[in-house]
């Protein structure tokens, strides 16, 4: 009975006062090996996929990647001049220059076993100078932010978690809103958007940089449905995250060099 009371106290301490963050970080480091072991099957599968393939498949893939690389290189040719132009124009408008963000590749080693929580565990921790609040992206868009950092691993809260919200803007016209997770991996809800606001299906939502947590301009979601009920003050808007939240294995941690301000 006494132990139960102590544990109840523990729950309260963690939930209400966040007084155990330091302890959690240490314990996180201790339990990391369990995630490593649980990750072995998928790593074996990866190994098998990279090592046990035929020569022709590899050649084909190589060919495809070479073509893709050529196209991407072609697209970046103008990048340098466009960037310079952008900086010049921003200077003309008296707004702060946008700095490029550095990224570090991390690998996903675990997924929250608890269906009501949308967490993932990645294989970079305080040793790689990961910090709480750091944004995580994959090739297609924003995935979430770091909430706990251990020595070798850290825990990332996905943007679809019930407790997560991200400030966004519509890429087309700059309308600002807040996209909240609703607990399912495939949808975000955009709340408190007036029924008359110009927002349509297919609009891309990107991070707005307001709130100072996420850098500006990363794609977050594509609006998938807008329901305007005349009886309601706000439109009911659902959006589908662009990041492959349930599939990506290789992810990028964003190190913001300096937060650029909106002009």
């Amino acid at each position: 009975m006494l132990t139960l009371l102590v544990v109840a106290g523990l729950i309260l301490a963690d939930l209400r006062f966040n007084s155990l963050d330091r302890t959690r970080a240490i314990l996180d480091t201790l339990v990391a090996p369990v995630y490593w072991v649980a990750d072995i099957p998928s790593r074996l599968k990866d190994w098998q996929e990279t090592h046990l393939v035929s020569r022709s498949t590899l050649q084909g893939e190589n060919e495809r990647l070479r073509r893709e690389n050529l196209i991407l290189e072609g697209r970046t040719q103008q990048m340098a001049s466009l960037q310079a132009e952008n900086i010049r124009l921003r200077a003309l408008l008296n707004s702060a220059a946008l700095l490029r963000d550095d990224v570090v590749v991390a690998e996903l080693i675990g997924v929250s076993p608890d269906p009501v929580r949308q967490h993932v565990v990645i294989n970079k921790g305080s040793r790689d100078s990961v910090y709480v609040g750091q944004p995580l992206i994959d090739a297609n868009g924003l995935m979430g932010q770091v909430v706990e950092v251990g020595e070798f691993t850290s825990r990332v809260l996905l943007i679809t978690d019930l407790t997560h919200s991200v400030p966004v803007q519509v890429n087309r016209n700059g309308v600002r809103a807040i996209a909240e997770g609703n607990g399912s991996l495939s949808a975000l809800e955009v709340h408190h958007v007036a029924a008359t606001t110009d927002i349509r299906e297919g609009d891309l939502l990107v991070t707005s940089g307001l709130g100072g947590r996420f850098p500006v301009g990363y794609p977050v979601a594509v609006v998938s449905s807008v329901v305007r009920d005349p009886g309601q003050t706000f439109a009911r808007i659902l959006a589908q995250p662009t990041a492959a939240l349930d599939r990506s294995r290789h992810v990028l941690l964003v190190f913001t060099v300096g937060q650029g301000e909106e002009g």
Binding site: L4, V7, A8, L10, I11, A13, D14, L15, L20, T23, R24, L27, D28, L30, V31, V34, Y35, S112, P113, D114, R117, H119, V147, E148, R155
Partner: peptide
Amino acid sequence: GMDILEGAVLGQNTF
């Protein structure tokens, strides 16, 4: 251990 592993509130599984 399980609380930390699942990223749950410290004490949930313990209790």
